[in-house]
Design a protein around this nucleic acid. Structure first.
Lengths: 156, 156
DNA sequence: CAATTTAAGTTGCAACTAGAAACTTATAAG
DNA sequence: CTTATAAGTTTCTAGTTGCAACTTAAATTG
């Protein structure tokens, strides 16, 4: 049975992927989030940098805020200026965003990553996002199978 | 400068993330891909399992085929039956899909993963998808910064 | 082999969503 | 107190989604 990569799915709808997509919305949400990871904070910055329509941007920002991915605050020194900042929940999307970007690099654009994300300690680029074993080994599809939680060896 | 997670972006449009999203399309494409990872292969399987409209399904499948994420073949023994199978490029989306699903588990549904992906060798669940250092250490946001490729210590 | 069933789509049409551009509102600066 | 700026909202058109019914080609049944 090992090596067969088929999830024993009861109900595809009862899964966290649709829930995640519900929160993210779609295409523009990913691009807004990416811009947020890159330090953009203001409506006009997103608008001019992404070239998104203002109404769609307003809609997506409020959706992301509603889902707790971004938080919205007016600056005390100039209350016209609204700062959008990633919450902890929003920052937790970094692996997803990087995985998707790396896939695009490898399979769509063929471009090497630039700029790259670097580990402060050893000053080396991060390792590509992969599925890894408990001990850190990268795993390929043939080394994996799906199982129910109760059938899995528990962490220590 | 360390600890500042801001990508020095020249042009947000020249990035692999939009390219990846262009290939994926949107919400339904993720859900179709997920179903494909779970061993679904036929039009009617996707249709009844996902509850997607037939025209949208046809549209998304042909988009995924056009982008080389799925391949489409008629079975020799019954040429009515079309099999959609993940290509190597499609399988390369597994880390992205898992990362997004894990995020949904942690931050949206709160449900523990079930079923889980297991390493054939040690029979343990895979480690959550994270950003990892060259040597396999998981890295948090504060341990990372963006840099240009030429400024990064090269692999060996 | 004609009549029926099945798998995989298409087509038609109403409802919804995206997008460009002009307009509004609240605050701040001169 | 007039003008400028940031962040939206409105309006209107064009495109997309989704349901239901229809088509097409291949297989199965009588």
């Amino acid at each position: 049975m090992a090596g067969k990569l088929r999830e024993p799915l009861r109900d595809l709808a009862e899964c966290s992927l649709p829930a995640a997509l519900e929160a993210m919305g779609e295409r523009w949400s990913f691009l807004i989030l990416r811009a947020a990871f890159n330090g953009l904070h203001h409506f006009e910055e997103y608008q001019s940098e992404l070239g998104i329509a203002r109404n769609i941007l307003a809609n997506r920002l409020s959706r992301l805020v509603k889902h707790g991915i971004l938080k919205r605050d007016a600056l005390p020194e100039d209350r016209r200026k609204i700062v959008y900042r990633l919450t902890e929940k929003g920052e937790a999307l970094l692996p997803t965003m990087l995985a998707l970007r790396q896939w695009g690099e490898r399979w769509e654009t063929g471009m090497p990553a630039t700029p790259v994300l670097v580990d402060n300690r050893d000053k080396r680029a991060i390792r590509p996002i992969t599925v890894t074993a408990w001990d850190g080994r990268p795993l390929s599809k043939s080394e994996l199978h799906w199982a129910l939680p109760q059938d899995v060896v528990q962490d220590v």
